[in-house]
């Protein structure tokens, strides 16, 4: 694939699916500089993945898989190198948080997702974004019944948490 073609597709994907990337970033990284770091990592992997995309699956599914896998790999690396991590200068931020958006319920939901393990976090994001069990199973590489078992457990946990915390719980 020619670099110009790769760049065109990448920019198209980034424009159309940036919301998806933001959700993954927020579910896997919590401090602003970590979110920047993870966003860079994910976009780099999405860029590298462009020539490998053959159109067998929907672009959204493809980008989700690349983003989730990058986020899991980043979490592992981040855990190992946390002590040596250098803070990124606040002036050099790549992701600019929209200060006007205040949604305590959404914050609470992200907080609950962040407390799940990496696999359950991926499943939850796919479920909340409306993917069917079959699509989630294909993306994750597990059976639909297996997806069902895991998602039911996650739903129960989220509902139980929301009852414990009536202030921000939905």
């Amino acid at each position: 694939m020619k670099p110009n073609e790769q760049k065109r597709i990448f920019e198209e994907w980034l424009t159309q699916h940036r919301g998806l990337l933001f959700k993954v970033v927020r579910a896997y990284a919590f401090k602003p500089h970590d979110q920047d770091d993870l966003f860079q990592e994910i976009t780099m992997q999405v860029w590298n993945s462009v020539p490998n995309y053959r159109g067998d699956s929907a672009v959204t599914t493809w980008i989700y898989r690349v983003a989730l896998y990058s986020a899991m790999a980043w979490s592992r690396k981040e855990r190992r190198h946390r002590e040596n991590h250098q803070a990124i200068n606040a002036d050099d931020r790549l992701l600019l948080q929209r200060s006007s958006i205040e949604n305590p319920q959404l914050d609470w939901l992200y907080e609950q997702i962040s407390q799940l393990d990496e696999i359950d976090r991926s499943l939850t994001l796919l479920m909340l974004d409306g993917f069917s069990y079959r699509e989630i199973g294909d993306t994750m590489g597990i059976s639909q019944s297996h997806v069902g078992v895991k998602l039911n457990r996650i739903k129960k946990r989220l509902i139980a948490q929301s009852k414990k915390e009536p202030k921000h719980g939905v």
């Binding site: 979110q35 966003f39 992701l95 600019l96 948080q97 929209r98 959404l106 939901l109």
Partner: peptide, 13 residues
């Protein structure tokens, strides 16, 4: 609640 973020992106890039 989850769907409410689709109208307003979380970040600017």
């Amino acid at each position: 609640v989850w769907n409410s973020q689709h109208d307003k992106p979380l970040y600017g890039v």
